[in-house]
Write a protein that binds this DNA or RNA. Structure first.
Length: 265
DNA sequence: CGGGGCTCCTGTGCGC
DNA sequence: TGCGCACAGGAGCCCC
């Protein structure tokens, strides 16, 4: 799943390739991917726009065009493939440099929006702070008085931006914290450690170009590299790297959650 | 406020 | 071999 590190990887890779390039034509292959405006208007308005910048906010990718903003949310299975036109693409942007930017999305839960502004998107207005911008004190404030389970809170984009199901599980394992703990039950020391582990795992994941545990690929179509370095995600039944006991799996907030019963308290 | 469940959507992988 | 079904989940939404 594309989370902060995967979206950041896409942003960095594409920034080197398509800034200054013009979108010359658009093909939409699935009628659910364009959320606004209508598909026809979307195509008409994006035609001949040049790409001036790429911004990331949490898991959102924003292409700054000369007249509009193209806002891409990859959700679960979205990714962007640069190069040749791909027959499986849900949408294809033909570029003035002769290349194509393919919007890939197996499960079609992602979305494309073309707007004249982006700050007013409700998702962005409610979006919490980026983990890297958080101080220990601010993080403690977020956890304060919250009875929500710590893992569910980490996934709440309105509290903290960019963390998804993979890195929430990883950070909690690294910090030795049981995902079921109420957020308010964490001590100052635990909160500080957890924030550090969140930053550590996100930094490591960016360094390794993200995790390809599912559909996600980088803009060259290559796998990430972080998927081989994950400590608990997807490791149900396999031995814990710290204590050797089998990793367990449960459902939290209707999402799979792997953890070590002994190492996470 | 918290928790649970449903919805969107399709490809994969399992059991029979 | 092939069919059918459960499952994967980010985020919005509804209800209790």
């Amino acid at each position: 799943m594309p989370e902060l590190p995967e979206v950041e990887t896409i942003k960095r890779e594409l920034s080197k390739k398509i800034i200054g390039v013009k979108i010359t034509d658009i093909t939409i292959n699935h009628n659910k991917v364009v959320k606004e405006p209508s598909q026809d208007l979307f195509k008409k308005q994006i035609q001949n726009s040049s790409i001036e910048d790429i911004i990331r906010r949490g898991k959102l990718l924003i292409f700054v065009l000369d007249k509009k903003f193209l806002i891409v949310h990859l959700r679960i299975s979205g990714w962007l493939l640069y190069g040749e036109k791909d027959p499986k693409a849900r949408a294809v942007f033909g570029l003035s440099n002769g290349k194509f930017l393919n919007y890939m999305d197996q499960r079609v839960l992602g979305e494309l929006r073309l707007r004249s502004s982006f700050e007013d998107l409700s998702f962005l207005q409610r979006l919490g702070p980026e983990p890297f911008e958080l101080t220990d004190k601010e993080f403690s404030e977020i956890l304060k008085n919250k009875k929500t389970k710590i893992k569910v809170l980490l996934l709440d984009q309105n509290r903290i931006a960019g963390i998804g199901n993979i890195y929430a599980q990883e950070a909690l394992f690294l910090a030795g914290i049981d995902p079921r703990r109420q957020a308010l039950s964490l001590t100052e020391k635990e909160a500080k450690l957890l924030l550090k582990k969140i930053k550590d795992v996100l930094t490591e994941a960016i360094k390794y170009h993200g995790s390809s545990v599912d559909a996600y690929r980088d803009t060259e179509g290559k796998k990430g590299g972080m998927e081989n370095r994950l400590k608990v995600y997807g490791r149900k039944g396999e031995p814990c790297y710290k204590c050797g006991r089998p990793i367990e799996k449960m459902s939290l907030g209707s999402r799979g959650t792997c953890f070590c019963k002994k190492c996470q308290r």
